[in-house]
Design a protein around this nucleic acid. Structure first.
Lengths: 200, 200
DNA sequence: ATGAATAATGAATCATTATTCATTATACAA
DNA sequence: TTGTATAATGAATAATGATTCATTATTCAT
């Protein structure tokens, strides 16, 4: 009895990621994905029930990986909330720095597929964000973070800022090195734009 | 000689705005827009060469209006950079507060059409953002804003944060009143999340 | 009133692509 | 080695929906 080939499933996923990143989900053609993966168009349907399933798996993995890392990070008692916040930013930047295609998919497609699939995707995404919120709450409890800021709003604030900056980076990586973006992002979310003169 | 009816052009634009906001540009059907505007599908093509032109006009007007307001705001000598920054935030919130459909179009479609059309759209959008940058630069010169923050990054930071917050608001306006979002946004961009104890 | 000129109509066209499925090739159990 | 289950194939299908265009209705200058 022949069996499905897992390396082929991966090849299709990778090809799907690249083509969807290049052309956008809607314009991404199954024929092109098949060609990139070196399989026939029909073969794709042995491994994934439809085009949507491909991107859903990509996003499920992304948020699954990030949620797993966050489960390790949040409970650490040896780190301050500020350190945890910085490390979360690093975590996310590190994932996308090495994978422009994944960055593009997050930037352009994430939202519209959040509610698609069995529910794993939304679950992973929410878990990641809830763990992030946990860090903020810890900081507020420690009087390190400002208690007057609405945590839910702050969380969306950061996601949105990050997403848009990542998008600008994919459009023109030269003029906006991801490292500078990272440093500025960390600084702004902590200190804002106002100049705080430090006493001599 | 019969003439094209400007009220019909407006009706089509309004219907297009509503339907595109509801269904997204791609899923928005010309037939539905025509029905809402109480015209035949073919009539739409008397007023707009294609579906894309409709959304481009909507976005051109949005950024045109905002750029015009900014041209009045930035040169005012009676306002501090902080006040100008706050007023810019108010300006943008005010436009979208009364127009959920326009908010949805900004949130979901703006980026992909930025480079479409004759160039007016991109021009208006850039002008608005450049004038915003102007305010930041003025604040830096006055030692009110932090000189170490990359202005271009800060600008994308705010747009992204704003867009995502607006999106959350369109998804669930109850749980996230736009007024609370507005206040938090103003506070965070100025002060960040860190708690700055004020001397007694 | 009249008759160009052109606005309005909406059924038909046409292009596009995801998906299916009849057929062929291949891996594996016996 | 052989038979069979099923993987692989890619041409054909089928659905979709933007746009066209032949026809009809309306406006307006004369």
């Amino acid at each position: 009895m022949r069996t499905l080939d897992d390396s082929k499933r991966k090849a299709i996923l990778k090809a799907g990621m690249d083509v969807i990143a290049e052309d956008g989900f809607h314009a991404a053609k199954i024929a092109k994905i098949a060609e990139r993966a070196c399989v026939a168009t029909g073969s794709i349907y042995r491994y994934y029930p439809n085009k949507e399933a491909i991107i859903v798996v990509i996003l499920e993995q992304l948020w699954g990986d990030l949620a797993r890392e966050m489960r390790l990070l949040t409970p650490r008692a040896d780190l301050s909330p500020v350190e945890k916040l910085d490390m979360t930013v690093d975590l996310v930047f590190d994932i996308f720095t090495g994978n422009t295609a994944l960055a593009l998919i997050f930037v352009n497609e994430n939202h519209q597929f959040l509610s698609k699939g069995a529910g794993t995707l939304k679950h992973n995404y929410d878990e990641f964000l809830d763990l992030g919120e946990e860090i903020i709450r810890e900081g507020v409890d420690h009087r390190i973070f400002n208690a007057h800021i609405d945590i839910k709003i702050f969380r969306h604030f950061i996601i949105g800022a990050f997403r848009h900056l990542l998008q600008q980076w994919t459009l023109d990586p030269e003029s906006m090195p991801l490292n500078r973006v990272r440093q500025n992002l960390k600084f702004i979310i902590k200190n804002g734009i106002l100049h705080h003169p430090t006493k001599k």
